[in-house]
Amino acid sequence: MNNIAERHQYIINKVKQQGHVNVVDLCNELEVSSVTIRKDLKLLEDKGILFRTHGGATSHNPYMIDRPVNEKEKLQAGEKDKIGKTAAQMVEANDSIIIASGTTVLTMAKHIQPQESLTVVTSALNVALELMQHRDVEVLQLGGILRKSSSSVVGPYAIQILEDFFCSKFFLGVDGIDLDFGLTTTNSMEAHLNRQMINKSQKTIVLADSTKFGKRGFGKICGLEDVDEIITDEGISEHIVQVLDGMGVKVTIV
Protein backbone atom coordinates (compact mmCIF):
# COMPACT_ATOMS: atom_id res chain seq x y z
CA MET A 1 0.00 0.00 0.00
CA ASN A 2 2.32 2.73 -1.28
CA ASN A 3 -0.38 5.22 -2.27
CA ILE A 4 -0.29 8.06 0.25
CA ALA A 5 -4.07 8.54 0.23
CA GLU A 6 -4.64 4.84 0.92
CA ARG A 7 -2.08 4.86 3.73
CA HIS A 8 -3.69 7.87 5.33
CA GLN A 9 -7.13 6.32 5.15
CA TYR A 10 -5.80 3.10 6.69
CA ILE A 11 -4.23 5.05 9.57
CA ILE A 12 -7.39 7.13 10.10
CA ASN A 13 -9.58 4.01 10.22
CA LYS A 14 -7.27 2.29 12.69
CA VAL A 15 -7.15 5.33 14.99
CA LYS A 16 -10.96 5.49 14.96
CA GLN A 17 -11.22 1.78 15.80
CA GLN A 18 -8.50 1.51 18.44
CA GLY A 19 -8.09 5.06 19.71
CA HIS A 20 -4.34 4.93 19.03
CA VAL A 21 -1.73 3.56 16.58
CA ASN A 22 1.88 2.47 16.92
CA VAL A 23 4.61 3.43 14.42
CA VAL A 24 6.23 -0.03 14.48
CA ASP A 25 2.92 -1.78 13.84
CA LEU A 26 2.07 0.57 10.98
CA CYS A 27 5.48 -0.02 9.39
CA ASN A 28 4.89 -3.78 9.39
CA GLU A 29 1.29 -3.58 8.22
CA LEU A 30 1.87 -1.03 5.45
CA GLU A 31 5.38 -2.26 4.53
CA VAL A 32 6.96 1.19 4.60
CA SER A 33 9.73 2.80 6.64
CA SER A 34 9.30 4.52 10.01
CA VAL A 35 10.33 7.80 8.35
CA THR A 36 7.36 7.50 5.98
CA ILE A 37 4.93 6.70 8.78
CA ARG A 38 6.13 9.60 10.91
CA LYS A 39 5.64 11.96 7.96
CA ASP A 40 2.13 10.55 7.47
CA LEU A 41 1.30 11.11 11.14
CA LYS A 42 2.62 14.67 11.03
CA LEU A 43 0.48 15.47 7.98
CA LEU A 44 -2.60 13.97 9.64
CA GLU A 45 -1.89 15.91 12.83
CA ASP A 46 -1.54 19.14 10.85
CA LYS A 47 -5.01 18.45 9.45
CA GLY A 48 -6.39 18.01 12.97
CA ILE A 49 -7.26 14.34 12.45
CA LEU A 50 -5.06 12.87 15.21
CA PHE A 51 -2.44 13.77 17.81
CA ARG A 52 1.11 12.41 17.67
CA THR A 53 2.54 10.72 20.75
CA HIS A 54 5.78 8.93 21.62
CA GLY A 55 6.02 6.06 19.11
CA GLY A 56 2.61 6.60 17.57
CA ALA A 57 -0.55 8.69 17.58
CA THR A 58 -3.88 8.94 19.36
CA SER A 59 -7.38 10.22 18.66
CA HIS A 60 -7.54 11.96 22.06
CA ASN A 61 -6.14 15.42 22.69
CA PRO A 62 -3.09 14.90 24.95
CA TYR A 63 -3.09 18.48 26.23
CA MET A 64 -4.60 18.80 29.70
CA ILE A 65 -6.93 21.56 30.93
CA ASP A 66 -7.07 22.78 34.52
CA ARG A 67 -9.98 21.36 36.53
CA PRO A 68 -11.19 22.09 40.08
CA VAL A 69 -9.80 19.75 42.74
CA ASN A 70 -13.27 18.48 43.73
CA GLU A 71 -13.90 17.45 40.12
CA LYS A 72 -10.52 15.71 39.77
CA GLU A 73 -11.09 13.75 42.98
CA LYS A 74 -13.87 11.78 41.26
CA LEU A 75 -11.67 10.69 38.34
CA GLN A 76 -9.99 7.23 38.66
CA ALA A 77 -10.75 7.34 42.40
CA GLY A 78 -10.14 3.62 42.92
CA GLU A 79 -6.78 3.67 41.15
CA LYS A 80 -5.69 6.79 43.02
CA ASP A 81 -6.54 5.18 46.35
CA LYS A 82 -4.36 2.13 45.60
CA ILE A 83 -1.51 4.34 44.39
CA GLY A 84 -1.76 6.55 47.47
CA LYS A 85 -1.80 3.57 49.82
CA THR A 86 1.32 2.11 48.20
CA ALA A 87 3.14 5.45 48.37
CA ALA A 88 2.22 5.90 52.05
CA GLN A 89 3.95 2.61 52.85
CA MET A 90 7.23 4.11 51.61
CA VAL A 91 7.30 6.65 54.43
CA GLU A 92 9.82 5.54 57.05
CA ALA A 93 10.25 6.20 60.76
CA ASN A 94 11.63 9.68 61.53
CA ASP A 95 11.37 10.60 57.85
CA SER A 96 11.41 14.09 56.34
CA ILE A 97 9.43 14.29 53.09
CA ILE A 98 7.92 16.77 50.63
CA ILE A 99 4.39 16.28 49.32
CA ALA A 100 3.23 18.36 46.36
CA SER A 101 -0.38 19.11 45.44
CA GLY A 102 -2.97 16.98 43.68
CA THR A 103 -5.73 14.49 44.37
CA THR A 104 -3.47 11.42 44.17
CA VAL A 105 -0.99 12.71 46.75
CA LEU A 106 -3.97 13.67 48.92
CA THR A 107 -5.01 10.00 49.00
CA MET A 108 -1.46 9.20 50.06
CA ALA A 109 -1.74 11.66 52.95
CA LYS A 110 -4.94 9.96 54.07
CA HIS A 111 -3.15 6.59 54.23
CA ILE A 112 -0.06 7.76 56.12
CA GLN A 113 0.36 6.10 59.51
CA PRO A 114 3.47 7.78 60.98
CA GLN A 115 6.11 5.61 62.62
CA GLU A 116 7.59 7.60 65.48
CA SER A 117 8.02 11.15 64.12
CA LEU A 118 7.47 12.48 60.60
CA THR A 119 8.19 15.89 59.09
CA VAL A 120 6.20 16.90 56.02
CA VAL A 121 6.82 19.96 53.85
CA THR A 122 3.86 20.64 51.55
CA SER A 123 2.39 23.25 49.25
CA ALA A 124 -1.09 21.70 49.50
CA LEU A 125 -3.55 23.01 52.09
CA ASN A 126 -5.71 19.87 51.97
CA VAL A 127 -2.65 17.67 52.57
CA ALA A 128 -1.63 19.81 55.55
CA LEU A 129 -5.15 19.65 57.03
CA GLU A 130 -5.19 15.88 56.63
CA LEU A 131 -1.82 15.34 58.30
CA MET A 132 -2.28 17.80 61.16
CA GLN A 133 -4.61 15.22 62.73
CA HIS A 134 -1.59 13.08 63.62
CA ARG A 135 0.21 13.97 66.85
CA ASP A 136 3.56 12.65 65.55
CA VAL A 137 3.50 14.57 62.26
CA GLU A 138 5.09 18.02 62.04
CA VAL A 139 3.70 19.89 59.04
CA LEU A 140 5.53 22.78 57.41
CA GLN A 141 3.02 24.57 55.19
CA LEU A 142 4.61 26.62 52.42
CA GLY A 143 3.24 30.11 51.84
CA GLY A 144 2.50 32.01 48.67
CA ILE A 145 -0.19 32.65 46.09
CA LEU A 146 -3.19 30.37 46.59
CA ARG A 147 -4.33 28.33 43.58
CA LYS A 148 -8.00 27.65 44.27
CA SER A 149 -8.25 24.95 41.60
CA SER A 150 -5.65 22.81 43.39
CA SER A 151 -5.95 24.08 47.00
CA SER A 152 -2.21 24.76 46.99
CA VAL A 153 0.27 27.62 47.02
CA VAL A 154 2.80 28.71 44.38
CA GLY A 155 5.22 31.54 43.85
CA PRO A 156 8.51 32.99 45.16
CA TYR A 157 7.58 32.84 48.87
CA ALA A 158 7.13 29.06 48.69
CA ILE A 159 10.43 28.67 46.84
CA GLN A 160 12.24 30.89 49.35
CA ILE A 161 11.08 28.75 52.29
CA LEU A 162 12.23 25.59 50.49
CA GLU A 163 15.81 26.87 50.33
CA ASP A 164 16.34 26.00 54.00
CA PHE A 165 15.40 22.31 53.73
CA PHE A 166 16.48 19.00 52.22
CA CYS A 167 14.28 15.89 52.44
CA SER A 168 14.65 12.18 51.75
CA LYS A 169 11.67 11.81 49.39
CA PHE A 170 9.45 13.99 47.22
CA PHE A 171 5.99 12.66 46.37
CA LEU A 172 4.76 14.37 43.21
CA GLY A 173 1.39 14.36 41.48
CA VAL A 174 1.27 15.42 37.81
CA ASP A 175 -1.24 16.25 35.10
CA GLY A 176 0.68 14.58 32.30
CA ILE A 177 3.58 12.22 31.55
CA ASP A 178 4.98 12.29 28.03
CA LEU A 179 7.94 10.05 27.17
CA ASP A 180 9.49 12.83 25.07
CA PHE A 181 8.43 15.99 26.92
CA GLY A 182 8.54 14.67 30.51
CA LEU A 183 6.34 15.58 33.48
CA THR A 184 3.88 18.46 33.23
CA THR A 185 1.17 20.32 35.10
CA THR A 186 -1.43 22.81 33.89
CA ASN A 187 0.14 25.75 35.76
CA SER A 188 3.61 27.13 35.01
CA MET A 189 4.16 28.53 38.53
CA GLU A 190 3.30 25.17 40.05
CA ALA A 191 5.70 23.49 37.63
CA HIS A 192 8.49 25.83 38.74
CA LEU A 193 7.80 25.11 42.42
CA ASN A 194 7.80 21.36 41.72
CA ARG A 195 11.23 21.68 40.06
CA GLN A 196 12.60 23.27 43.23
CA MET A 197 11.08 20.47 45.29
CA ILE A 198 12.94 17.94 43.14
CA ASN A 199 16.19 19.80 43.83
CA LYS A 200 15.49 19.65 47.56
CA SER A 201 14.89 15.89 47.70
CA GLN A 202 17.09 12.84 47.53
CA LYS A 203 14.48 10.81 45.68
CA THR A 204 11.54 11.83 43.46
CA ILE A 205 8.51 9.52 43.40
CA VAL A 206 5.67 10.28 40.97
CA LEU A 207 2.10 9.22 41.78
CA ALA A 208 0.07 9.02 38.57
CA ASP A 209 -2.77 6.86 37.34
CA SER A 210 -2.39 5.36 33.87
CA THR A 211 -4.61 7.98 32.18
CA LYS A 212 -1.88 10.57 32.76
CA PHE A 213 0.49 8.88 30.30
CA GLY A 214 0.60 10.41 26.84
CA LYS A 215 -0.82 13.68 28.19
CA ARG A 216 0.79 17.12 28.37
CA GLY A 217 0.08 20.11 30.57
CA PHE A 218 1.12 23.71 29.93
CA GLY A 219 4.00 23.82 32.41
CA LYS A 220 6.94 21.43 32.21
CA ILE A 221 8.16 20.18 35.57
CA CYS A 222 11.15 18.09 34.50
CA GLY A 223 12.37 15.36 32.18
CA LEU A 224 11.99 11.68 33.05
CA GLU A 225 15.71 11.53 33.84
CA ASP A 226 14.94 13.40 37.08
CA VAL A 227 12.44 10.76 38.25
CA ASP A 228 13.43 7.78 40.42
CA GLU A 229 10.12 5.94 40.58
CA ILE A 230 6.57 6.10 39.20
CA ILE A 231 3.67 4.45 41.03
CA THR A 232 0.74 3.78 38.71
CA ASP A 233 -2.04 1.29 37.98
CA GLU A 234 -2.24 -1.73 35.68
CA GLY A 235 -3.73 0.33 32.86
CA ILE A 236 -0.22 1.44 31.82
CA SER A 237 0.96 -0.09 28.54
CA GLU A 238 3.80 -2.59 28.46
CA HIS A 239 5.57 -0.43 25.87
CA ILE A 240 5.68 2.55 28.24
CA VAL A 241 6.95 0.36 31.10
CA GLN A 242 9.77 -0.93 28.88
CA VAL A 243 10.77 2.58 27.78
CA LEU A 244 10.79 3.85 31.37
CA ASP A 245 12.80 0.84 32.51
CA GLY A 246 15.35 1.61 29.79
CA MET A 247 15.61 5.15 31.17
CA GLY A 248 16.32 3.82 34.65
CA VAL A 249 12.92 4.79 36.06
CA LYS A 250 11.41 2.19 38.40
CA VAL A 251 7.72 1.53 37.69
CA THR A 252 5.56 0.15 40.50
CA ILE A 253 2.17 -1.12 39.30
CA VAL A 254 -0.65 -1.48 41.85
Rank of each mutant, 00 (worst) to 15 (best):
H134Q: 09
G214Q: 15
K47P: 02
V23Y: 01
G223I: 06
K169E: 06
Q160D: 15
K14S: 09
H192T: 15
I4P: 02
S210M: 13
Q9I: 03
V32R: 04
G248D: 10
F166T: 07
D164P: 00
V249G: 07
D40Y: 02
A158M: 04
L50N: 00
K80L: 03
D95E: 08
L30R: 04
S210C: 12
Q17E: 14
I177W: 01
G214R: 12
T186C: 11
I65H: 01
F51L: 11
N61G: 04
I37S: 01
R147N: 13
I145L: 14
V120H: 08
R216Y: 12
T185Q: 13
R67P: 00
L41R: 03
V32G: 04
S34F: 01
V69F: 12
E163P: 01
D180R: 06
E73D: 10
E229W: 08
G55N: 04
V120M: 11
R52W: 08
V35Y: 11
T122A: 12
A88N: 00
L125M: 15
T185E: 12
G143P: 07
H239M: 10
T185D: 14
K200E: 12
E138R: 15
T252H: 14
S34M: 02
T185N: 13
N94E: 12
M64W: 00
S149W: 07
V121F: 13
T232L: 02
H192A: 15
H134T: 06
P114G: 05
G217A: 09
G223Q: 07
T119K: 15
G102D: 04
T36Q: 06
N126H: 14
K42F: 05
M64Y: 01
M132Y: 08
D180Q: 06
D25F: 10
A128L: 10
T186S: 11
D136M: 14
Y10W: 09
V15L: 14
L106I: 04
G246W: 08
K110E: 11
T186P: 03
S149Q: 12
V23F: 03
L41E: 00
V120N: 14
S210I: 14
Q196I: 08
T186E: 07
P62E: 03
V139T: 11
V24Y: 05
R52S: 09
L30D: 03
M189I: 05
E71R: 11
G19W: 07
A191N: 09
N2E: 10
D178Y: 02
L244N: 05
L118D: 02
K74L: 14
I231N: 05
E130L: 11
V137S: 10
E29L: 13
K200L: 07
L244M: 12
D209T: 12
E92K: 13
D180V: 01
S34R: 05
G102H: 05
V127Q: 08
T252N: 15
T36S: 08
K200V: 10
